[in-house]
């Protein structure tokens, strides 16, 4: 959890808005450090978290969260965290063993991926509404807060052949059930490539997906490199866009911050005020 980012977004684990759909996007920059922030944030806030970790193995996420002060293994044991390890599940679909019962979540990989992500959505839905997930815990297990879905990251789904339309439908359904019905939050990460000129014929590309997700979201964090090039002390800039009206009815302006990622966190500062410069 990055404290400076919490103050920028005006949230804290004790008080955060519910029913939010947050989009984290990175253009040619690696924005996964923000997913780690949100993961540790919501675990600290005692929410029931469903994490689709499609990019790296469980031990990677575990090691990073350890540095941020949260133990994923413990959260899994206490059933606060449901973790889908995309790599292992995907491998078991590519090379089916004979004796797998298997999680059907990634079964779209064996069939035509154009079929859609309905099974993945069912997996998400069942994991957040399992006992101990905000409803009465019959076996005395701990009560957790509102459900949260984190996805790292959606561009892997595009790489595996899923169409942008299917991903948009999946995010629509997640938003409808998690944000509106269950009053939880959804955070999704998407990486885009270099922006090309108007690609009119590209209905399936990540640009359309990005625009569709921005239309759906209520908070967008866009990470990109500095326009002036590579710098060792400032790793890039983050643009924070609020899309919904805030409580007092005013639109909030977009804000741009620069950031630097270090071992145990990331620091955010206004443009030009990096400690390396001042």
């Amino acid at each position: 959890m990055f404290t400076e980012l919490n103050s920028i977004l005006n949230t804290s684990p004790d008080s955060f808005t519910q029913g939010d759909f947050i989009l984290v996007s990175g253009r040619q920059s690696d924005a996964s450090f923000l997913i780690h922030h949100f993961l540790s944030f919501y675990l600290r806030a005692r929410c029931k978290v469903c994490f689709l970790g499609l990019v790296q193995s469980f031990s990677h996420y575990s090691a990073v969260c350890q540095r941020l002060g949260v133990s994923l293994a413990q959260a899994k044991e206490k059933r606060q965290l449901v973790f889908l390890e995309g790599l292992q599940e995907g491998l078991s679909v590519f090379i089916p063993q004979d004796d797998t019962t298997g999680n059907k979540a990634l079964s779209f990989l064996s069939r035509d991926p154009m079929v859609g992500l309905q099974n993945l959505y069912e997996f998400v839905r069942s994991s957040v509404s399992s006992p101990g997930g905000g409803e009465e815990g019959s076996d005395g297990s701990e009560q957790w807060g509102p459900p949260v879905l984190l996805v790292d990251d959606l561009s892997v789904l595009l790489s595996l052949g899923v169409s942008a339309r299917a991903v948009l439908d999946f995010s629509h359904y997640c938003r409808a059930s998690l944000c509106s019905q269950l009053q939880g939050n959804v955070v999704m990460l998407l990486h885009c490539e270099e922006e090309e000129e108007e690609d009119d014929g590209d209905d399936e590309g990540s640009e359309r997906l990005l625009k569709g997700l921005i239309h759906q979201c209520c908070l967008a964090l866009h990470v990109q490199g500095l326009p002036t090039g590579y710098c060792r002390d400032i790793h890039g800039q983050v643009e924070v866009c609020w899309r919904r009206r805030q409580g007092d009815g005013q639109h909030t302006q977009n804000k741009v911050f620069q950031y630097k990622v270090h071992d145990k966190g990331a620091s955010f500062f206004a443009r030009g005020t990096s400690s390396a410069v001042l």
Partner: peptide
Amino acid sequence: AYIDPLGW
């Protein structure tokens, strides 16, 4: 049509 537009 927000909750289930595709009939899932």
